Simulated scan of single mutants.
Amino acid sequence: MKVEFKLFTLLFAFSAIMGVIYGIFSKWEEPVGTVALFLTSGLCIMIGGFLWWTGRKIDLRPDDDPLGEISDVEGDYGFFSPHSWWPLFLGASGALMFLGMAVGWWLVMLAVPFVAVSAIGWVFEYFHGEHSI
């Protein structure tokens, strides 16, 4: 967690300094950019503080060892179905839905049932049929 803490602390400092510079160059008359940069710095320090606080309570991870190898972190990433067609259907119906947001809401209404069926099919793929567990 040390690397993440340092990264968010660096991002906090950068966005706070850029917020001050932006405010000076805009003569503090343009509030949106200045507020956005200061809010970004606030969010970065909140995340960095959480990572620092959590990092104190847990043991060091293999990522935190400067002499660590990539193989120290490897492990089980989960089960991924090698034969599933549901991600293809979900991606196509999701693309159709997002296209509908640009073209017309009628297309979104047409795509929502396909997105729902695809998502349910993918989630419950192993609860029925030939490959049920």
Rank of each mutant, 00 (worst) to 15 (best):
residue 55 G to P: 02
residue 65 D to M: 00
residue 114 F to D: 08
residue 43 L to W: 11
residue 98 F to N: 02
residue 54 T to Y: 15
residue 115 V to Q: 15
residue 47 I to F: 14
residue 109 M to P: 00
residue 61 R to K: 12
residue 82 P to F: 04
residue 96 L to T: 06
residue 86 W to F: 07
residue 98 F to S: 08
residue 70 I to P: 02
residue 60 L to W: 08
residue 26 S to T: 11
residue 54 T to E: 13
residue 39 L to I: 05
residue 32 V to Y: 12
residue 110 L to V: 12
residue 69 E to D: 10
residue 112 V to A: 11
residue 34 T to G: 14
residue 111 A to M: 10
residue 73 V to S: 11
residue 113 P to I: 05
residue 54 T to G: 13
residue 71 S to D: 02
residue 103 V to K: 14
residue 61 R to N: 12
residue 27 K to C: 08
residue 98 F to W: 09
residue 47 I to T: 08
residue 101 M to A: 09
residue 71 S to R: 01
residue 87 P to C: 01
residue 72 D to C: 04
residue 113 P to N: 03
residue 36 A to E: 01
residue 64 D to E: 15
residue 22 Y to F: 13
residue 50 F to Y: 12
residue 107 L to T: 03
residue 108 V to K: 07
residue 75 G to L: 06
residue 31 P to Y: 15
residue 59 D to P: 09
residue 54 T to A: 15
residue 88 L to N: 09
residue 81 S to H: 07
residue 92 A to K: 04
residue 43 L to T: 13
residue 77 Y to K: 13
residue 32 V to M: 10
residue 84 S to M: 06
residue 52 W to E: 05
residue 66 P to V: 09
residue 25 F to Q: 14
residue 66 P to R: 14
residue 22 Y to G: 12
residue 99 L to S: 11
residue 24 I to F: 09
residue 53 W to C: 02
residue 47 I to W: 08
residue 112 V to W: 11
residue 51 L to E: 09
residue 108 V to H: 10
residue 53 W to T: 11
residue 76 D to S: 09
residue 57 K to N: 10
residue 78 G to D: 05
residue 87 P to Y: 01
residue 84 S to Q: 07
residue 91 G to T: 07
residue 71 S to C: 01
residue 86 W to P: 04
residue 105 W to A: 05
residue 98 F to E: 05
residue 100 G to K: 13
residue 44 C to Y: 15
residue 30 E to P: 00
residue 28 W to K: 07
residue 30 E to W: 04
residue 118 S to N: 05
residue 79 F to D: 10
residue 72 D to K: 00
residue 118 S to C: 09
residue 109 M to W: 12
residue 28 W to S: 03
residue 72 D to G: 00
residue 101 M to T: 06
residue 100 G to A: 03
residue 118 S to E: 06
residue 50 F to G: 05
residue 62 P to S: 04
residue 103 V to A: 11
residue 113 P to W: 01
residue 58 I to L: 13
residue 39 L to R: 11
residue 76 D to V: 12
residue 26 S to N: 14
residue 53 W to D: 08
residue 112 V to E: 03
residue 82 P to E: 13
residue 92 A to D: 01
residue 75 G to N: 05
residue 106 W to G: 07
residue 73 V to I: 03
residue 72 D to A: 02
residue 83 H to P: 02
residue 53 W to P: 00
residue 48 G to I: 04
residue 25 F to Y: 10
residue 57 K to F: 05
